[in-house]
């Protein structure tokens, strides 16, 4: 691979990892949701993210050109080789935590993917055009949930606040540009994440304040996902996600 393709590969795998890891987390709610409809909804959102991950992985292996498949990348890499941003891998915790994270990411992806639809790489642009419609719909679901939980009982408010306090240390990584992403930005393939932060802050803070909640976003930011430095939680997730393929390589449905 030439340098441009190496950067593109790394960029695509990063986006795919974000999606597949979040998808796995959401799928943990399957049969555990607070009620049946919510269970189905969370599983469907998980499915959208699996689809997104597959599109990015499929394009990544095409760029790589070694004849590997999307499954090779998803199932046969170790924790240190995974490059998802940390916010996606945090455990689902309680329903409030899952929905606050989803809301944060929905707002982020609506902003990010909108820019990415204008990517100079036509495949990246096509994937973004497909995915943004799904994220806009996800936001229509996560936003009312935050409103409802924030204006609900003392207990639901307390749980939303706990989630906000926990997540505040992890959202900053969404707006950091890595070296290869900067390279791709110069050829208009990637998006400048740093430009999205003020709009994200504005949207989230405005919405939270109308719901009587707030968070302080000036705290320490925990980083490392794109370089394979993860929280302790990712290894456990991967062991569950990968064990079937690891014990029976090449297994098909």
């Amino acid at each position: 691979m030439n340098t441009k393709n190496k950067n593109l590969y790394r960029f695509l795998v990063g986006l795919a990892d974000d999606s597949v890891i979040l998808s796995h987390r959401l799928s943990e709610w399957c049969s555990n949701g607070p009620y049946l409809e919510e269970d189905i909804a969370l599983s469907n959102v998980a499915l959208d993210y699996i689809g997104r991950a597959r599109m990015f992985y499929q394009y990544a292996v095409e760029i790589e050109g070694k004849g590997r498949t999307e499954d090779d990348i998803a199932y046969f890499r170790n924790e240190r080789e995974y490059t998802n941003l940390l916010v996606h891998e945090l455990p689902i915790n309680d329903f409030a935590f899952t929905m606050v994270r989803q809301y944060f990411l929905d707002v982020f992806y609506c902003l990010y993917l909108e820019k990415l639809t204008a990517s100079s790489d036509s495949t990246v642009a096509a994937i973004a055009s497909k995915a943004i419609k799904e994220s806009r719909y996800h936001l229509k679901r996560s936003e009312p949930w935050i409103e409802q939980l924030s204006q609900g009982t003392e207990e639901s408010k307390r749980r939303v606040q706990l989630a906000l306090d926990e997540l505040v240390n992890f959202v900053g990584e969404l707006f950091v540009m890595d070296d290869w992403e900067k390279e791709l930005l110069s050829s208009a393939i990637a998006v400048d994440r740093t430009e999205l932060q003020s709009e994200w802050d504005h949207q989230v803070q405005t919405f939270l304040s109308t719901s009587g909640m707030s968070f302080d976003d000036s705290q320490v930011q925990i980083r490392g996902g794109r370089n394979g430095i993860h929280t302790e939680h990712l290894g456990h997730l991967l062991s569950e996600m990968q064990f079937l393929q690891r014990s029976n390589p090449g297994l098909n449905w």
Binding site: E37, I40, A41, N44, R141
Partner: peptide
Amino acid sequence: LSQFGSTA
């Protein structure tokens, strides 16, 4: 009733 039904 729910934003997701029997399929996505």
